[in-house]
Simulated assay, not measured.
Amino acid sequence: MRSPRRRPLLIPVLLCALAVLAARPTDTTDENGGAGAGTDVARLYAEAAKATRQYEDGRRAAEAQRSKALDYEKRLDRQRQKIDAMHEDLGRIASAQYRGAGGLPLTAQMLLADDPEELMRGQRALSRADLAVNSAIGRSLRAEARLAADEAKAQAAWRALEERNDRLAALKKEIEAKLESARSRLEGEADASVAAGSCPGAVRLDRSDEGLDRSWVAPVQTYDLSAAFGSGGSRWANGHTGQDFAVPVGTPVRSVGSGRVVKVSCGGAFGIQVVVQHAGGYYTQYAHLAAVAVDQGDRVRAGQWVGQSGSTGNSTGPHLHFEVRVTPEMGSALDPVRWLSERGVSL
């Protein structure tokens, strides 16, 4: 028989379990329970990059097939010219035979000839020439047929690739439209976090393997260099302290080398930022982010995503502000382009 005193314990236990579940972190979900903008942007960014690669691969393949078809057309033209020339040769041989014999049968020619043997030798030479030309024409016609078949295949393959590329271009355009919308949402979330003075939690992005086999990499993969180290301007009291990379909002930002995350913060001139400590007493800063993908204390490898670019803080547009320092705080900056160059990374 079960003890009646055990039953009332079920209610507090269930309440405790619900409290624990409610207190679990929800870094990668938004207030509606769906995927956060940072996760959406990362996924769409990867899809757009894949679609772009497929489109470019298809475009190159189509160009190669088109070149092959054009090459077959040129070879066909040359082959037809050769056949025409052979037909002319054959016509000349026939005309020479007719003129030389005056239209008489070979028997009559032999009876009237001063030297029948010489006549027979000439006839044999003309016959061999006739056979040679006919044989060459036959080979050329077969070659022309093969070339025509190859050209038809190349043209069909080219058209199929063009159709595939049209579909890929439409897919790419659709993904990029979704990406633009997600980027706008991400930027809005980042600005709201900075305005509230509360940093967003780390969005644990699917990390790219690219660059993980190297000791040092560039902080972003595709970029335009903008404001350089030491450049002057009204926005900087003593010159620009880093190198800016002009990239769209949501671009994955990578740790340039292995190290430990010593700072994740938001607010102030740098907006949302990450600082990584590397061996040798160097620190790298990744500023004006829209989202972070690491927490303070995390160990990172070269090429590992630490965040997504944005335009938070003192920024005039989407970009990554990248610094190299000998302390975790500003005031000890080095030229990041030269520093990376010394480590085999050319920007």
Rank of each mutant, 00 (worst) to 15 (best):
F245T: 09
A287P: 13
A192K: 10
R183L: 00
A69V: 13
L320I: 09
G250A: 03
Q155T: 15
E117S: 14
E63A: 14
G268Y: 03
A246S: 13
E118D: 14
T327F: 00
M86R: 07
A108M: 12
N165L: 03
Y72V: 07
E176P: 10
G58M: 00
T251Q: 04
V256K: 03
L334K: 00
A227F: 09
V13T: 11
K263P: 10
L112S: 13
G232T: 10
P336H: 01
E176S: 02
A152F: 05
A132H: 12
R167D: 13
E210R: 14
L18Y: 06
A17K: 06
S346Y: 05
V324Y: 01
P328G: 00
V276S: 02
P25V: 04
G102R: 01
K82S: 03
G280Q: 01
A279M: 06
T52F: 10
W158F: 14
A145W: 09
L112P: 15
R167S: 09
W236V: 05
G239R: 00
G103P: 05
A333H: 04
Q277D: 03
R92F: 01
A177V: 04
L70G: 13
L212V: 08
D30F: 04
E118S: 12
G259H: 01
M1I: 07
P318E: 08
G34E: 15
G267N: 03
A154L: 06
E47S: 07
R159S: 13
V253S: 03
V13C: 07
L21C: 14
A291Y: 05
Y98T: 12
S67P: 15
L126D: 09
G271V: 07
L106S: 08
R128F: 11
Q79S: 04
S208P: 15
R260M: 01
A227Y: 13
A108K: 15
P252Q: 06
A302I: 02
S341L: 08
A333E: 10
A143S: 10
V306Q: 04
V203E: 11
S95D: 14
A49W: 06
R235G: 06
E117W: 12
T284F: 02
L111V: 10
L334W: 02
R204C: 05
R43M: 08
D166E: 12
L334E: 01
M110Q: 14
A302E: 00
V203Y: 08
E323V: 00
S215A: 09
A290V: 08
K82V: 04
E342N: 11
G307M: 03
G103K: 01
V345Q: 00
D224M: 12
